[in-house]
Amino acid sequence: MAQQLQQGLFLALAGVAVVAALGVIFNRNAVHSALSLLANFVALAMLYVLLNAQFIAIVQVAVYAGAIVVLFLFVVMLLGAGGEMQMGGWLNWRTAFIVAAALVLLTLTGTAVFEGTINGAIGTATPEQIAQVGQTEAVGTALFTDYLLPFELASVLLLVGMLGAVVLGQRWRGAIAGRPSGEAE
């Protein structure tokens, strides 16, 4: 019973995720695309809960749905790109080629999934083991013991990215070598 419930839940969430993903690329309005992206992220967060990764699910909602989608919406509004975009003709050789290439890629990955076997050392983080200490504590312990260096590097990366975004977003006064100034023209 519980198995059928979980499988039904998976199918429903997978449907939402796929429809939202198609909505992102086929919507003419950039705001609608961003909202479809939000639906896609939330559906994936629920799938993470289904996979026993509750901590990552919360982080997914906070980072992707909370920060990234808001940033996208902010830029869409700032650029005034919310109106209808013309898409050009859909039926041309380029589109046909891309769809064919996508189908070939999907066939290859699908074959790999169903024909291949997953080999690898089975770790110690079984659901029972994680349930003993708690999901967040288990991830946190791994993050601060085995993966401390990547964690610190990620913080440096975030700092560099933040500085880069601030510098890029500045309105420069006067022309800098090789760079036309917006106000002078």
Binding site: V63, Y64, I68, I122, L157, G161, M162, L168, G169
Partner: peptide, 29 residues
């Protein structure tokens, strides 16, 4: 595989994605 390594990797991917979006949108503006 009953291993937490995948979840740690997702954590790192999220950090990279956040930086990518911030810098990419700044370039776009």
């Amino acid at each position: 595989l009953s291993s937490l390594t995948g979840q740690i990797f997702v954590f790192m991917v999220m950090a990279v994605a956040a930086v990518e979006v911030a810098v990419g949108l700044a370039i776009l503006i």
